[in-house]
Amino acid sequence: MKKIIFKIAAKLITIISILFILWILVSWADVVAHNDPVTGSAKYFRGNAIVLFTE
């Protein structure tokens, strides 16, 4: 029983970590896409990690 709980917890931590890294990467791509000096709109998607961390 202990092994099963450990395996489930390990998989859950892995999935959460992957999702967090994906969120950071997508947020970074959104910031890069909207910071164009010519047409930069600075209208980032709601929940952008970079914006949330810097405000």
Rank of each mutant, 00 (worst) to 15 (best):
A33Q: 13
I4D: 07
Y44L: 13
V51P: 02
I4P: 01
G40L: 07
N48A: 01
I8Y: 08
V38Q: 06
D30V: 14
A29R: 10
L19Q: 08
I15S: 00
W28V: 14
G47D: 09
K3E: 09
I4G: 02
I15G: 00
I18C: 03
K7V: 14
V38K: 03
K11G: 09
L22Y: 04
K43A: 06
F6A: 07
W28C: 08
F45Q: 06
T54P: 00
A42R: 12
T54A: 00
F45M: 08
S41Y: 14
T39D: 14
T54W: 01
I24M: 06
I18R: 00
A33C: 10
V38F: 01
I8D: 04
I50S: 01
F20S: 08
I5M: 08
A33N: 15
T39I: 15
K2P: 02
H34P: 07
I18H: 00
L25R: 08
M1W: 15
I24A: 04
F20V: 10
I15D: 01
F45A: 02
S41G: 09
S27E: 13
L22A: 12
A33H: 10
I4F: 14
T39S: 12
I50Y: 01
F6R: 02
N48P: 05
I50D: 01
G47M: 06
S17R: 00
I4M: 09
V32G: 04
S27A: 10
I18S: 04
G47Q: 09
K2T: 07
S41D: 15
I8F: 13
L52T: 09
I13H: 04
W23C: 01
N48I: 05
F53T: 02
K43Q: 14
